[in-house]
């Protein structure tokens, strides 16, 4: 569910998200240390994060891992062109499978890009991921035009940016 409506964040929330976009420090009092630069008390930092989490603005708070170093390098983006009135049902059949990492509906850009339903699968072996994609297609999606885009090189991956960091990383990883 996209609950972009009736949720508000104020300037201090956005500043806080900016201050934690590269992560909490590994110190004994990380929330206190984050608050220092923002002139926010430790308590305010914690209360704001708790509130954003209970308002579902923060989907989760914790360790954010990279798939690739752990061997998950068969990373497929699968897209389908599903009629608008059938997208919700199709998405439901996709998200029923626990090997699916993400499932989104996005705008189409005809004639360049006709696809609107996306899912991501992170696996260790390409042939396993291909079988998982076949499972999705057998589950009612085969009727729709589809493409599978495995990733090749990763040029960059960081968290979303809510403020510009003091030093901008200019090199690609």
């Amino acid at each position: 569910m996209n609950m972009a409506f009736n949720i508000t964040v104020d300037e201090r929330d956005v500043a806080l998200l900016g201050a934690i976009q590269d992560g909490l420090p590994f110190s004994e009092r990380p929330f206190k240390d984050i608050g220092k630069a923002l002139e926010m008390s430790e308590e305010e930092v914690i209360v704001r994060i708790e509130r954003m989490q209970s308002n579902n603005i923060i989907a989760r708070f914790g360790l954010v891992l990279q798939h690739r170093p752990l061997g998950y390098r068969a990373n497929a983006m699968v897209v389908w062109d599903v009629p608008d009135d059938k997208v919700d049902k199709a998405a439901k059949s996709i998200t029923a499978h626990d090997f699916v990492t993400l499932c989104y509906c996005r705008a189409r850009r005809a004639p360049v890009w006709q696809y609107n339903l996306y899912c991501m699968i992170h696996g260790r072996e390409r042939d396993v991921v291909e079988k998982q994609i076949a499972i999705l297609n057998n589950d009612g999606l085969a009727a729709f035009p589809s493409k599978t885009l495995f990733s090749r090189r990763r040029f960059k991956q960081t968290g979303a940016r809510f403020s510009k960091p003091p030093e901008i990383e200019r090199r690609c990883t």
């Binding site: 996209n2 609950m3 998200l17 934690i20 976009q21 590269d22 992560g23 909490l24 590994f26 990380p30 994060i49 954003m52 579902n56 603005i57 923060i58 989907a59 989760r60 708070f61 914790g62 360790l63 954010v64 891992l65 990279q66 991956q157 960081t158 968290g159 979303a160 809510f162």
Partner: peptide, 8 residues
């Protein structure tokens, strides 16, 4: 990557 938030 970090200890932090995944923002919806």
């Amino acid at each position: 990557t970090r200890v932090g938030a995944i923002v919806r």
